[in-house]
Amino acid sequence: MNLLKTWLIACSFFLYGWAGAQTHPDSLLPVRGFCIGAPQSQNLDGFITFIDQELAPRKVNTLILRVDFNYEYKSHPELRDKNTLSKKDVKKLVKVCQKNNIRLIPQINLLGHQSWANQTHNLLRVYPHLDETPHVKMPEKYVWPNADGLYCKSYCPLHPEVHPIVFELVDEVCDAFEADAFHAGMDEVFYIGDDKCPRCSGRDKAELFAGEVKTIRDHLAQKNRALWIWGDRLLDGKTTGIGMWEASMNNTHRAIDLIPKDVMICDWHYERPDQTPVYFAMKGLKVATCPWRNPKNAVTQVQDVVKFRAAATKPMKERFQGVIQTVWSGAESFLDEFYGRKKNTEEGENTAANCFRTLFSEIEQLSAK
């Protein structure tokens, strides 16, 4: 009887362990991410509580923080925002993420997104000679579309002074965040290879974009750090019908065949759950799909990635990395919505907080199957 009891107990442990291994979140989706603007210093404690009580229980294992100039840079204090995170603040973020086994990745927008609406961001405001299109003046009142095709400014990737500056920022923020990866943004780049730029005029836009990706990637590799970017500029907006926002209409899409294969692609689609992760994976790139505020799309996107991984060959499976919930506001606005302190009545169910809850609920259900 004792031998039979021991055998039954052993079998139950074996079966439980086998089933657990099949449904472990890491085997289902290696990357389960969350991307948001870094909090202001005065709101840091509330965000840390959110990491501890909301991200960790949902088994989020990657946190991308859009830092940009919200850090007290020592290398370039002239580029700081007025109110910034201190190094001590950042170490609090590092501590809570390490405690919960969350990979912390800082982001600074490189190349594009050097302005927004009628405001020039810090890099080009302080160093206007780095502007790819200095002849395009910022309007008092911004409207789209406009005669200049101005969405966001870009820096000139071939200007000899740009990389010494931005790489000092990148190194400093990566050191502070103790990061083994860095997100460079690089989405929605409309200004590149401008005809009036003395350095870029006449050059192939795909080669310019790929060259900037490789330059950033090679710099990070010196300290064994990986490069992450948004994937929209690598998709052909005309052939796919995806258009100018979530894909490229200015011929940068050919850069997909020119960039290093160890660059991680964050493939965002907000209007439709387009299945472009397959394209990136077939090009040899690792990819995570990224929803924002549409819960139904998010469910479809995570189901797609799970299906892709289940049906793929071994090399392809390893490239389908997972999903990243994106939030295009500061941490404070998101937390106000998430905790019900403020309600977004205009958007109905299509909010970032609802999408976040729905997405990770779906991941939990898929893990339980």
Score class of each variant (00 low, 15 high):
residue 99 K to W: 01
residue 299 V to H: 05
residue 154 S to R: 08
residue 293 R to Q: 13
residue 222 Q to P: 06
residue 60 V to N: 00
residue 148 D to P: 02
residue 86 S to Y: 07
residue 76 H to M: 06
residue 23 T to Y: 12
residue 126 V to E: 12
residue 173 V to I: 12
residue 204 D to K: 10
residue 229 I to V: 14
residue 142 Y to G: 10
residue 155 Y to N: 04
residue 44 L to C: 08
residue 296 K to S: 14
residue 286 K to C: 13
residue 302 V to F: 01
residue 61 N to T: 09
residue 109 N to E: 15
residue 101 N to R: 13
residue 335 L to M: 15
residue 93 L to S: 07
residue 213 V to F: 02
residue 210 A to I: 05
residue 257 D to C: 01
residue 53 Q to V: 00
residue 277 P to T: 00
residue 105 I to N: 05
residue 324 I to Q: 10
residue 95 K to N: 11
residue 286 K to P: 08
residue 66 R to F: 10
residue 275 Q to M: 12
residue 323 V to H: 02
residue 228 W to I: 00
residue 6 T to E: 15
residue 71 Y to G: 02
residue 43 N to I: 00
residue 313 T to F: 03
residue 263 V to F: 03
residue 10 A to C: 13
residue 69 F to N: 15
residue 76 H to N: 03
residue 19 A to Q: 15
residue 140 E to G: 14
residue 35 C to E: 13
residue 53 Q to I: 00
residue 194 D to M: 13
residue 278 V to F: 09
residue 40 Q to N: 15
residue 205 K to C: 07
residue 105 I to M: 07
residue 240 T to H: 06
residue 142 Y to R: 05
residue 27 S to G: 14
residue 8 L to W: 07
residue 287 V to T: 07
residue 357 R to A: 11
residue 19 A to V: 12
residue 112 G to W: 06
residue 108 I to A: 05
residue 223 K to E: 13
residue 305 V to P: 01
residue 83 N to M: 11
residue 28 L to V: 14
residue 184 A to T: 03
residue 225 R to E: 06
residue 67 V to G: 02
residue 44 L to H: 01
residue 334 F to P: 00
residue 150 L to I: 07
residue 118 N to C: 07
residue 115 S to M: 03
residue 82 K to R: 15
residue 110 L to A: 04
residue 244 M to N: 13
residue 240 T to N: 09
residue 31 V to G: 01
residue 85 L to I: 09
residue 299 V to S: 09
residue 78 E to C: 03
residue 330 G to K: 08
residue 225 R to T: 03
residue 181 A to S: 15
residue 216 I to R: 11
residue 74 K to G: 04
residue 269 H to E: 10
residue 208 L to Q: 12
residue 315 P to W: 11
residue 41 S to E: 04
residue 12 S to G: 00
residue 264 M to E: 11
residue 150 L to W: 08
residue 43 N to M: 09
residue 127 Y to D: 03
